[in-house]
Design a protein around this nucleic acid. Structure first.
Lengths: 211, 211
DNA sequence: GTTGAAATTAGTACGAA
DNA sequence: TTCGTACTAATTTCAAC
């Protein structure tokens, strides 16, 4: 089998691991589909829904876990119920050569749910959950601004989370049989489709695999 | 596993439900802490780790699910393994009075993992997982640009996902016992702490609860 | 809210196709 | 590989305290 070399910029899932462990077939994907909706389903019930025997289900389930295709099982909660109903995005411009420090500081921020390094105008995007807007403000001005590695920030509030899937799968495609609308390639608005590849990217390589 | 363990596609991603069902105490939060790391743990083992009896664990577990504090259980996967190792953020400017249509189109895009309505320069942020950058480009130019409701887009690629927690909890705070660095409130850079509240927000209310 | 029992189910280890 | 079965261990449920 030929080695599938994911190109360097393929950042995605944060795991620096190279090398394909196992080839995922249609059955594997079906298992992941079921597990996405019900992560606590028993392997027996999983086998039934996928259409394989119990023994096979155990084998494949274990293989997916051992291979790392399934990282872990978790829950999804209602943040309003837990009192952290305010969600904000903080776009951060990181001072060059200080990525390691920035990353270290991130580990000390439990209210950060997600952080990604991006191309474009800013260097990183942080998603935080807070009790109120004042806490967001405090976070940005007191915590983030105090980090030397942080050059600038821009905060945006999330008004509504329209869609939140645990993950997407290749098998999801082809589902929406709804018609593609008739070729409206011509657009009147100018800034449509603007893509940002450039930006302060020199120091970004320093961030990869420091842990 | 029996009834309490199974969760169908019950909980919606963004339920606009108001009203607190049950008051979450420290024990509830501890349960959520354990479940965040291991969503498939047995209730018996959960009881042990939380420090309560089995019966109490079952009761509280059930209550959290019934109340909606726990929306569902799911898995976390490695997108590189599934062939969708390219992640991109697409910031969308939505034409006013066309939010409903925009939302309808979103439902037809299985490659969209997350979509949030935001304040600021853009109106929405979409996170997509793709096989390669060409697919991202195709998605933006062919699919999104074809939607009348979409006025403009701006695409940014995710180079690395530094941090990804299933969720954050109020009990997470106070954890980082690492010292707060000595009060560096003075900053030389100007744009620090810029917050965006304004923007085209008139039509946003129309998006809430249409389904 | 807690313990301790029984009943059910899950997980494992073999064969055989 | 996958399937089917038997065996072992664990969990869930339900009872009483």
């Amino acid at each position: 089998m030929s080695e599938i070399s994911r190109n360097a910029g393929s950042g995605g899932a944060s795991s620096g691991r190279i090398g394909i462990g196992l080839e995922l077939d249609a059955t594997h994907l079906k298992i992941l589909e079921v597990l996405r909706e019900n992560g606590r389903i028993s392997v027996s019930a999983l086998a039934e829904r996928v259409g394989i025997s119990r023994a096979s289900a155990y084998t494949r389930f274990e293989a997916l876990r051992a291979d790392g295709a399934i990282k872990r099982f978790t829950a999804e909660i209602d943040h309003v119920r837990t009192g952290l109903g305010i969600t904000a995005l903080i776009f951060v411009t990181v001072r060059q050569q200080m990525w390691k420090q920035f990353r270290a500081e991130l580990a000390r921020m439990p209210e950060v749910e997600y952080c990604a390094i991006t191309t474009g105008q800013h260097d990183a995007m942080i998603l935080v959950r807070m009790a109120d807007v004042a806490e967001v403000h405090a976070m940005v001005t007191d915590r983030l601004a105090g980090i030397p590695a942080v050059k600038a920030t821009e905060t945006v509030f999330i008004l509504d989370e329209v869609l939140k899937r645990p993950y997407v799968l290749p098998s999801d495609r082809g589902k929406p049989r709804s018609a593609r609308r008739g070729a409206q390639e011509t657009q009147g608005d100018v800034p449509l489709g603007k893509m940002r590849f450039v930006g302060a990217a020199e120091g970004r390589a320093a961030l990869r695999k420091d842990e």
